[in-house]
């Protein structure tokens, strides 16, 4: 059984992982989430991570060419650029 089947636990694993890194960075590549779920196929992880965005746990950030994920509201928003 995959850990992704237990939605609550899997969500906690993601938020814990991101919280732990919050000091250094707030935006993550999709690849980073593969490390949280090393036993699952990338496609399953992708589906799960995207569903967390729909649920409002995570949010996207995009440069136009690349997309990253972060905890909702974490890190710099467009209005500030490293001032806080």
């Amino acid at each position: 059984m995959s850990v992704l089947d237990n939605r609550e636990e899997a969500t906690k694993m993601v938020t814990d992982y991101l919280q732990k890194k919050l000091k250094n960075k707030t935006k993550f590549y999709l690849n980073d989430f593969y490390k949280v779920f090393p036993d699952d196929k990338p496609r399953q992880v992708k589906k799960f991570v995207n569903s967390l965005v729909t649920d409002g746990v995570l949010e996207y950030w995009s440069s136009g060419s690349t997309t990253m994920y972060g905890l909702k509201g974490a890190g710099k928003q467009h209005a500030s650029e490293g001032e806080e």
Partner: peptide, 20 residues
């Protein structure tokens, strides 16, 4: 122009490129 930001509409992760 600032670099990046908002991505899309609800349920979508693309199709909108944020420019501020």
């Amino acid at each position: 122009w600032k670099h990046g930001g908002i991505v899309g509409v609800f349920g979508y992760g693309g199709g909108v490129i944020g420019r501020y």
